[in-house]
Design a protein around this nucleic acid. Structure first.
Lengths: 211, 211
DNA sequence: TATTTAAGGTACAATTAGTACCTTATTTGA
DNA sequence: TCAAATAAGGTACTAATTGTACCTTAAATA
């Protein structure tokens, strides 16, 4: 359209004047990445697409994140709120566990299974990079088990549960099953599913301790 | 090197004469795909690479399978032996379950987690294609639960287990956990892991039936 | 032996990650 | 206030790879 290089008009677009930098630009990039991720999914989104949505170009991205997976991980870290990492205190084991599991399932579902697979597939080969640790903390977090143990400890103190050693595997069981449901079976995590796991699997195992 | 198009020598390579077709060629392609998969992994292998290993070109592949994931699924179906889909009969529940689980874990581990993720990631977008159903039958098989129910039924007949309804979720629990261990935690499936699942999770749940 | 079928060869389109390099706006600090 | 340093924008490119097109040629079939 415009045969010479100089801008003809000051461009009616009023925001055009400023060139974003630093944190402002970074936020715009992460926002664009998060939006593209949610609209297109991990595989369909592209670095060019993210850059275009942020009204800039790929360089701005690659100056900050070394790859697509790193970018997406950064966006997830920014936009998925950290769950409350604290044992609830409802006064009984069942409600403590239920409350905590439901909190976490809400968080987990903010990132799709396809995204997790995409990241794992892309990251699979390479050496573990900076933010992957952070990412795993979200998806595959051991600190969840710490809270679970707190919850059980409270139940022991209340006399609900015998202080016998409870197997690590049983402690992690609820979240293992929830992640399985979400990632492998790729099903929505409903309250029904969570209560079924608690009432028919977790509580029977924890309450009927045999040594 | 060779400036005109006609072959200069009959090519010392003695096997050169024949041009493979049909099943023979197909087997060679699947063999090449399986080898590349095991040597390079799903993400690193390429269609060109597979074709080259089979000493032909991509056309031979695309005439048979519509995509990389389809090809790999076909190779898996061919090279991963179908497990014995029959309830063992050792005379007691624990050994029946243990025998069956160990059989299946051996099969499962013939395909790497990275491959499963790769296929799921590639297939994610597209509509479910022909062989994906077959593939899921290997990785995420419901028919395993059929056998598990047989095993439990035998235990009921023996009087080991009360005939109370056993939850579907408990029936599938051992394999769910095994798949979780393998796919998400990406750990080798050892006999120890399997026995732990049986002795501390499955059996306690099945033996202490409360309605 | 003529015809049909499928394999081989080569080239190419399309997509996309990631890089290079130069120009230009904005910040910093002397 | 102005010069230097910094980082953004623009554009073009490489490289890898999936999937297609099209033509030639070997082998099976009738």
């Amino acid at each position: 359209m415009n045969s010479n290089n100089e801008p003809i008009q000051p461009d009616d677009n009023s925001t055009k004047t400023t060139r974003r930098r630093g944190e402002v630009l970074e936020n715009a990039l992460l926002q664009a990445a998060w939006d593209e991720l949610n609209e297109l999914g991990y595989n369909e989104m592209s670095m060019d697409g993210v850059a275009a949505r942020a009204q800039t170009n790929k360089n701005a991205l690659y100056r900050r994140w070394s790859s697509k997976s790193e970018l997406v991980i950064a966006a997830i870290i920014k936009y998925v709120p950290r769950p409350v990492m604290q044992a609830p205190d409802t006064g009984n084991l069942r409600d403590d566990v239920l409350t905590f599991l439901l909190q976490i399932t809400d968080t987990i579902q903010l990132v799709g299974a396809e995204t997790v697979f995409g990241i794992l597939a892309d990251h699979g080969d390479r050496a573990i990079v900076s933010s992957l640790a952070d990412f795993k903390e979200k998806v595959q977090d051991d600190s969840l088990n710490v809270i679970m143990r707190d919850i059980l400890q409270h139940a022991v103190e209340r006399g609900e549960v015998k202080p016998d050693a409870i197997r690590e595997r049983i402690v992690s069981l609820p979240f293992d099953l929830i992640r399985y449901e979400f990632l492998i079976k790729q099903q929505m995590l409903t309250t029904e599913t969570v209560t079924e796991i608690i009432d028919y699997i977790f509580l029977p195992l924890v309450l009927s301790v045999r040594h």
